[in-house]
């Protein structure tokens, strides 16, 4: 899962965190999709899950704080999208607690994380950058 220059928002803090998210998720996909036995990689899967859960929250908080600072007009909508995404990850956490870390559910989650991140960073977050540029142009 490759980071692309077109994903750059133009805000260093946000871009650095996005790059980290893409990189971690990419490694996660490689671990989940490699040919090793599921039992051999389960510990790494669990560790990555913990990291992703924590890092997503940190990133969303930082990004929301930045949007507040610049008085981003679509803040409320953007925050709701973050919340819906966190809720959907938490649904998986509950499934893992109840049913264990099954290969099928981890693959499903991995696919959701990947598609969501590409679309969210590639489209939704770009609007933050566009707003910043617009504001700077008016200043």
């Amino acid at each position: 899962m490759m980071w692309k220059e077109k994903y750059r928002v133009g805000v260093d803090l946000i871009d650095d965190q996005h790059i980290e998210l893409f990189s971690r998720l990419s490694k996660f996909i490689q671990v989940v999709q490699n040919e090793f036995n599921w039992d051999e990689k389960i510990e790494e899967v669990k560790e990555t899950m913990v990291f992703m859960q924590e890092y997503v929250v940190i990133h969303f908080n930082d990004e929301e704080e930045y949007m507040e600072k610049i008085e981003y007009p679509k803040l409320k909508q953007h925050k709701q999208i973050h919340k819906d995404f966190k809720d959907s990850i938490n649904d998986y956490v509950v499934i893992f607690q109840e049913e264990g870390y099954t290969e099928e559910k981890i693959q499903e989650l991995c696919a959701k994380l990947m598609t969501w991140l590409i679309m969210h960073v590639g489209k939704m977050d770009q609007q933050i950058g566009e707003y910043v540029k617009l504001k700077e142009g008016q200043a």
């Binding site: 899962m1 490759m2 990419s26 996909i29 490689q30 989940v32 999709q33 290969e103 099928e104 693959q107 499903e108 991995c110 696919a111 959701k112 990947m114 598609t115 590409i118």
Partner: peptide
């Protein structure tokens, strides 16, 4: 999207398509 070769339509691939 994933940046790696896929050789079968497994749960990861079908979920991503969905």
């Amino acid at each position: 999207m994933a940046g790696m070769e896929m050789d079968e339509i497994d749960v990861f691939v079908s979920s991503a398509l969905g």
